[in-house]
Simulated assay, not measured.
Amino acid sequence: MLLEYGLRNFLSFKEGATVNFRLDANVPPRISLDLPAATVMCIKGANGSGKTHLLKGLAFLASFASSSFSTDPDADIPVAPFFSSPEPSAFFAEFEVADTRYRYELDVHASGVAREALYKAAKRRTLVFERTPDGVRAVARLKALETMKVRRNASVVSAAYHHQIDELLPVHTFFKNIHFNVGSSGTRESLFMDLHKVAQLLSEHDDVRGYVEQFLQDCDIGITRLQISSEEGSDGQRRFFPVFIHEVAGQPCAVMPATESAGTKQIFRLMLPIAAVVASGSVLILDELDLYLHPHLLPRLLGLFLQTKAPGDPISQLLFSTHHSEVMDLCGRYRTTFVNKDNNQSYAYRLDEIPGDLLRNDRSLVAPYNDRKIGGVPRL
């Protein structure tokens, strides 16, 4: 479970920002769901304020920690400091896996890692390993890390996974299971967001296809059935695609992707990563969640992450950005983070950090937001 992450000297965040999922005893149980951290976090702000940059920070950290060993040995690290600052970009994440808390820290240039460290947090934080230009220093049971060769553009966590050092496997798995639709150059459609790739995967998993089909029906967009079809391409490979079955005058009518609505296709794309994350108890990062979607559908999507869990059930989390203001009232001040920009520098704050009684659990956030009392709006 993700508890907190932060970044500094990364894209528009010069001085840094922290996104805090932790919920203390002052948070009402109907919001906390009796969990130590939020299962949804809404990122709000004006166009160009840095919302996507804030999401990119966690996406980069997850990708680098888990997958950098597999990149080209000569490639630069895809990290961009604040306006070409010579200082390293810095990141951290605190998370919990199987009742064990970790803190992972990374300072990095495009040319290589300046520092990487992992801590275990019980009653007090203890160092698991630290990597600097001088080498790796590790606890006694992980002395193998000190003799392991780690490239300048790869993480110790990723290298340890490929060297089958099992003690770091929970950390690698946590980062590997963070799914996102943002990359170093902005919003992108990952393989699991591609319409045809989604269709192919659903053709192989009837239970997940049924889950997606049921959600489409629940959204009341006229679909009675979801069919997965395929055809052979000019290259001899099979190409999968969805067929949306609507009922017209009592008769089934097949609608192909080319003529189906953008909103329906967007829900279809979203449901596979959502189903995967909900089932596994991992983290999903979605930039512009509301793209092509009616705002009334957003509460239903968020509701998949806001259900009370039985003990032992996987806990999934959603970090997303949106321009729809009404979602703030669903998330509330403990689960909404605002991003603002001043002199081309972005900064962020969770709404419960605003002092005074302007924002309360029993009051809508939309009115003070529209009145420009809490930030996050464009300067027109």
Rank of each mutant, 00 (worst) to 15 (best):
D74R: 12
L142T: 06
R131H: 01
R137W: 07
A93M: 11
F82K: 01
V79H: 07
A98F: 09
A98N: 13
A90Q: 12
S67R: 13
R141V: 11
A117Y: 08
P81A: 01
R115E: 13
A75I: 08
D107C: 09
A110Q: 11
A98M: 04
P81T: 10
A80G: 02
R115G: 03
A144P: 02
V79G: 08
D76W: 07
H109Y: 15
F129P: 09
D76T: 07
A121C: 13
D134H: 12
F64R: 12
E130M: 13
Y119W: 13
D72A: 03
T71K: 15
Y119F: 15
A117W: 00
R103Q: 09
F91E: 06
E94G: 08
T71E: 13
S89G: 01
V139A: 14
T100R: 11
L118T: 07
V97F: 01
E94Y: 03
A114L: 08
A138L: 06
V128M: 13
R141A: 12
S68G: 00
V113A: 07
P133W: 03
K143V: 10
R103Y: 05
S70E: 15
A122W: 03
S111N: 14
E116Y: 11
E96I: 03
L127S: 12
Y119A: 04
R124N: 15
K120D: 09
R141P: 00
F64E: 01
P88D: 05
E87Y: 08
I77M: 08
A75G: 06
S70F: 10
A122P: 07
D76V: 09
E146M: 09
E105D: 07
Y119I: 06
I77C: 01
R137E: 15
P133M: 03
G112I: 05
R103S: 08
V139S: 15
F82W: 15
S85M: 03
V139F: 08
D134A: 14
A75D: 00
V108Q: 09
S89Q: 03
G112C: 08
